[in-house]
Design a protein around this nucleic acid. Structure first.
Lengths: 218, 218
DNA sequence: GTCTATACTTGGATAGAC
DNA sequence: GTCTATCCAAGTATAGAC
């Protein structure tokens, strides 16, 4: 051994290094989406991951820790997508269009559901609320930045503080997801995205909304 | 016996008729609010009600049925309050002011949390989603009526279909509650209510919003 | 790292005494 | 109607073999 010079074959050989861990995270995500927080047990998740229930505890210590890891991953992946959209947008209409696309994607994939279930489930587990709240901070900050850039030098910008608007936007999305999941019907949420797009276009025409400010300069 | 002529003393004497049932409903409400759907077990609820766990099944057949009964009661009581506000309002500003008061009340009492927990918890129990969705129908209808009366003959009314607006409002409130419960901080939600009130006042001044239409005539 | 087996806990639900 | 006792299912978590 050790002839090939590849480190991973030397001594700490890991048959499927980190693979199960990752599979469990994916399974946890799908469980949160399909059967909710109350249904996302170690056994349910392991079943979806195709491995034994004990792996949950070996890799994550507890079910809640695994669920938080799933939230982290979804959050990071989605944040990257949104960040990219925001940074590439040059016009407000363009931004809203891109946002609509990515938002619909979220709705279809159930990514926001993961967050919603963790928030509502946090009520049942002492201490979980803080953990989830921490992970929401970057999203609030992101929404605030987006609002600042979108409103930019808008004449009635001061009427709507970015912080408040960001809170409203996050709340609105969570609520839409909640309702969409309830009846498995996303058309109403999607219709609202379209409506927002239309209204923004209209406001832009009237001159109430100027162009966007550049990235990094809210 | 049967001398007094009062029916309830004849034969089917019920020591504390219907009392436990009602206490259980109240306990279920508080459990949903404090420990969420996942924590609202028969034992937890019975503990709060000060009775034995078996009473849940005697009176309601199952935990879920009890939770639905709690949702029904909260829903009916709150609907009456909102209905009264809407019917008594004559000006839009007055309506928004009253709505702010009652909404803050909901936030403080955690009534909306009951709904939020039932919606998110519905993911875990097959068939529960439909039950909860049914109970949401009157609220959507109510919100739609409110929007119609508020926008009334507004010049830009056609730009915002009442159905869509109602959906957005319900979603927004649910989302605000979700966030408020997470960090136990209702100030941001309350600030938004104040902001809405200010904006409506402003729009009324500019003439973009006319007076309200009368009750029953959206 | 992964599995089996197992200990322990909690929860849903029912039977039967009062 | 209410309680005690009890059964059974499901869940968390750990120990130990491979």
């Amino acid at each position: 051994m050790a002839s090939s010079g590849v480190r991973r074959t030397i001594s700490t050989e890991r048959p499927r290094s980190g693979e199960t861990r990752q599979v469990l995270v994916v399974a946890a995500t799908s469980a949160l989406r399909d059967v909710g927080f109350a249904g996302a047990s170690a056994r349910e998740i392991a079943r979806r991951a195709g491995c034994n229930q004990s792996q949950v505890f070996y890799h994550f210590g507890s079910v809640v820790e695994l669920l938080l890891a799933a939230l982290d991953e979804v959050s990071a992946s989605r944040m990257a997508a949104y960040r990219s959209v925001l940074d590439q947008a040059t016009t407000l209409t363009g931004l809203v269009e891109s946002a609509q696309t990515i938002l619909t994607e979220d709705l279809d994939s159930g990514y926001v559901t993961v967050l919603v279930e963790m928030i509502s489930g946090a009520q049942s587990v002492p201490g979980l609320g803080d953990q989830v709240a921490q992970r929401l901070v970057p999203w609030k900050a992101f929404a605030e930045e987006a609002v600042k850039r979108a409103l930019g030098a808008a004449p009635l910008g001061p009427l709507v503080p970015a912080g408040e608007a960001a809170h409203a936007i996050v709340a609105g999305l969570l609520g839409l997801e909640l309702l969409a999941n309830l009846d498995g019907d996303r058309t109403q949420a999607i219709a609202l995205f379209g409506r927002a797009r239309m209204l923004v276009g209209l406001l832009e025409l009237t001159g109430a909304l100027p162009g966007m400010s550049a990235p990094g300069q809210p």
